[in-house]
Write a protein that binds this DNA or RNA. Structure first.
Lengths: 189, 189
DNA sequence: GATGTAGGAATGAATATTCATTCCTATGAT
DNA sequence: ATCATAGGAATGAATATTCATTCCTACATC
C-alpha cells in the first residue's frame, strides 16, 4: 500500500489555503484535516513556506500541462483556439474546485520563492503567445498582451468565484454565453 | 492640534493590508508605519478586527458616494451611463492607489462583520441596478446581473493590478480601449 | 495638579517548529 | 511459518517565537 501522506497533506492544505488564505491557515489545522501528526508535515516539507510553494508549483504545472496538451496551434483559426483554451480553463475550474481559487489568491504572495514566480511567469508567457498570434492575425485588439490576458482571466476568475459560492448557477448555456462575452471583449470589432 | 492619529493609523493600515493582507499585517507594524505607539491604536479602535472593518466601510462608502454623485440616471443612454461609471472607477483607482486593491482582497474576508458585508452588498446592488436597467433597454446581454458585474469588475481590477505593479503603462488611450473592451464584453451584439 | 492622551515595555495566548519516542513493515534467521 | 531485529516513518508533547492586547508611566494642556 503506497504511502499517500504527502498527497493527503497537499489536499488538505489546498482546501484550507483556498478558503482562508496562507497566513490564516495554521500548520496544526492542516495536520488535523490531513489526519496526520503535525510533525509528519515536516517530514515531507521543510516548513510551511516550502509547502505552499510545492503546492503552488504543482497546481500551475498541472494547469499549464492541461493547456499544452491541447495543441491549439494545430489550427490557425484564432476563435477556434480561444474556444479550446477557454474550455481548458472551464474543465480545470470544474474538476479542481479549489485550485483556481488557490492560484488566484496566492499568485502574488510574499511567501512565493523564485521557482514559483518563474513557473507562474512561464504560464503567463504561454497565454501571451496565443494572444500575440491572434494580434498578428489581425483578429485581436492591439492592446498589450498582459492587458488582454487580465481582461479574460480577471473576468473568468471572478465569475467562477460566484459559481463556487453559489451566487450563480453553472450551466452549459451560461458558460457558452460567458465565453462569447470574453471573446467579444478582446476581439477587434 | 487637529488629532490626525486616527487618520494616520488608517492610512498606514490600508497600505499594509493592501500589500500583505490582513493576517500577515501585525498591529505593531501598523503602529510603526503610522508613527504611533502600539497602544495608541487601541485608543481609536477596539481591536484589529474593528480597525479593518472601519477601514473597509470607509472605503466602500467613499467609492459608493463617488458613484452616486454622478447621477447617471439623468440620461437613458446606457452606453453613456457606462462611460460615466467606468470613469468613476478609473478616478477612484487612480486617486486611491491602494484602496481598490484593498477592497478586492478583503471583500470576502472572514473578519468582516455584518455591517461591512451589508455595505458591500449595497454597493453591489447599486451596480446591479445599472445592469438591470441596461437589460431592460435591450442593450445588455441577458446574463445574470452578478455575472455581468463580475466580468467588468474582474477585468477592471486585474487590469489595475497590472498598472499598479508597473507591468503596463497607464494612458488615456489605453483606458479608452479598455473601456471599449469591457463594454463589448457585456453589450448585445 | 488634574485630566486626557500617547507611548512602548510587559503579558499571555497562539503558532511554527523540533525532537524524543513509538509504531510499522520489510527482511532474515530459525 | 514464526519470531527477532532494524530502520524508516509517524507522532504529538515540548519549545521557541510571534503577535494582539494590556497596562503603567510620561507628557501635555488646561
Amino acid at each position: 500500500m503506497a504511502s499517500n501522506k504527502r498527497e493527503d497533506i497537499l489536499n488538505a492544505a489546498i482546501l484550507l489555503f483556498a478558503e482562508r488564505g496562507y497566513d490564516a491557515t495554521t500548520v496544526p489545522k492542516i495536520a488535523d484535516k490531513a489526519q496526520v501528526g503535525a510533525g509528519t508535515i515536516y517530514r515531507y516539507f521543510e516548513n510551511k513556506e516550502a509547502l505552499v510553494n510545492a503546492l503552488f508549483q504543482e497546481c500551475i504545472h498541472k494547469f499549464l500541462e492541461a493547456f499544452k496538451s491541447t495543441k491549439p496551434e494545430s489550427t490557425t483559426d484564432v476563435r477556434q483556439q480561444f474556444h479550446v483554451l477557454f474550455h481548458v480553463m472551464v474543465d480545470y475550474a470544474e474538476n479542481n474546485t479549489h485550485e483556481l481559487h488557490f492560484i488566484d489568491t496566492h499568485c502574488s504572495g510574499h511567501y512565493l520563492d523564485e521557482k514559483s514566480k518563474q513557473i507562474f511567469q512561464d504560464f503567463l508567457d504561454f497565454l501571451k503567445n496565443f494572444i500575440e498570434h491572434g494580434k498578428e492575425q489581425g483578429v485581436l485588439c492591439l492592446l498589450p498582451s498582459d492587458a488582454l490576458i487580465a481582461i479574460v482571466y480577471g473576468a473568468f476568475s471572478h465569475l467562477f468565484k460566484l459559481i463556487r459560492i453559489g451566487v450563480i448557477q453553472e450551466s452549459t448555456e451560461l458558460l457558452d454565453s460567458i465565453e462569447e462575452c470574453c471573446w467579444n471583449a478582446i476581439r477587434i470589432h
